Amino acid sequence: MKFGVVVFPGSNCDRDVATVTEGLLQQPTRMVWHEESDISDLDVVVVPGGFSYGDYLRCGAIARFSPVMQATIKHAEQGKLVLGICNGFQVLTEAGLLPGALVRNRDLHFVCDRVPVKVERNDLPWTQEYQAGEVITLPIAHGEGSYYADPDTLAELEANGQVLFRYCTAAGEAENGSNPNGSLNNIAGICNHRGNVLGMMPHPERAAEPILGNTDGMKLFHGLLSAVAAIA
């Protein structure tokens, strides 16, 4: 499996992702500059966290027009895998690959913490190494991570099982007190209807090594490798 990690001016989590895909998983990984338009060699495109183009205007609003994002849209339309983490999630919503938007946190503060997250389903490559209903701990670091969608879109996401990750208590309850940013329905991550595009605010790549005290994010990447192995 070959990973491509998009690099925008202002990206700061691109090397974190590459450390996991290339360093820990020993998978071919290419850093993809935002001006590139040929990504046909890639199996998985990762749009990482950071502050693409300085987050001027809205988060991800400028990045959506980059050549690499136009190529990423075509990549997704072919059924290939796309993962957006934090700022990458914001970019995917701006680009129309995922519905809804990420807006200012409820308390208007930047939030940096480790939080419990519930895995809602495990029948997709992203989550197949987890158990449905499993509670994991992942880091978050964002100022505009509150997920918003209109009522009809929200109902459709829930009905289609497109909510893959949800903020929760340690016992798995999606309560208001366990919601770090005010996201509607405690949403932490969603996929598109087809399931090949995932956007999430928590950082799985920052929970992938024992030295960090947490490896709960590693199962997401292992799931991708297992999915490819099953096809092969």
Results as ranks from 00 to 15, higher is better:
residue 28 P to M: 04
residue 85 I to M: 00
residue 168 C to T: 14
residue 53 Y to G: 05
residue 143 G to A: 10
residue 213 G to Y: 09
residue 182 G to I: 09
residue 13 C to S: 13
residue 41 D to N: 06
residue 55 D to Y: 07
residue 85 I to F: 04
residue 117 V to H: 05
residue 232 A to S: 09
residue 97 L to T: 01
residue 138 L to V: 10
residue 146 S to P: 08
residue 225 L to W: 01
residue 205 E to K: 04
residue 190 I to L: 10
residue 94 E to S: 05
residue 40 S to W: 03
residue 203 H to Y: 10
residue 126 W to V: 05
residue 54 G to A: 15
residue 13 C to V: 00
residue 184 L to C: 11
residue 40 S to E: 02
residue 94 E to Y: 01
residue 124 L to K: 12
residue 119 V to A: 06
residue 50 G to K: 05
residue 39 I to P: 01
residue 142 H to A: 15
residue 68 V to P: 04
residue 82 V to I: 11
residue 69 M to C: 10
residue 84 G to Y: 03
residue 83 L to N: 01
residue 82 V to Q: 04
residue 102 L to Y: 03
residue 189 G to S: 12
residue 71 A to P: 00
residue 105 N to K: 02
residue 117 V to T: 07
residue 180 P to L: 10
residue 29 T to D: 01
residue 217 G to E: 02
residue 68 V to M: 12
residue 81 L to I: 08
residue 226 S to M: 04
residue 15 R to F: 12
residue 45 V to E: 05
residue 127 T to Y: 14
residue 66 S to H: 06
residue 83 L to T: 03
residue 52 S to R: 00
residue 221 F to Y: 03
residue 158 E to H: 07
residue 187 I to N: 06
residue 133 G to W: 07
residue 160 N to C: 15
residue 106 R to H: 11
residue 220 L to P: 00
residue 142 H to D: 11
residue 148 Y to T: 07
residue 138 L to E: 14
residue 30 R to L: 09
residue 92 L to W: 01
residue 8 F to G: 06
residue 1 M to Q: 04
residue 178 S to T: 11
residue 41 D to T: 05
residue 56 Y to T: 10
residue 149 A to D: 08
residue 188 A to K: 02
residue 169 T to E: 13
residue 70 Q to F: 13
residue 209 E to K: 12
residue 223 G to L: 00
residue 158 E to R: 14
residue 129 E to I: 13
residue 122 N to D: 15
residue 88 G to M: 06
residue 69 M to P: 07
residue 205 E to R: 01
residue 232 A to W: 00
residue 96 G to N: 05
residue 11 S to T: 15
residue 146 S to Q: 14
residue 219 K to R: 11
residue 86 C to M: 04
residue 139 P to Q: 09
residue 74 K to P: 07
residue 100 G to P: 01
residue 131 Q to K: 12
residue 121 R to Q: 13
residue 131 Q to M: 15
residue 110 F to P: 02
residue 45 V to D: 00
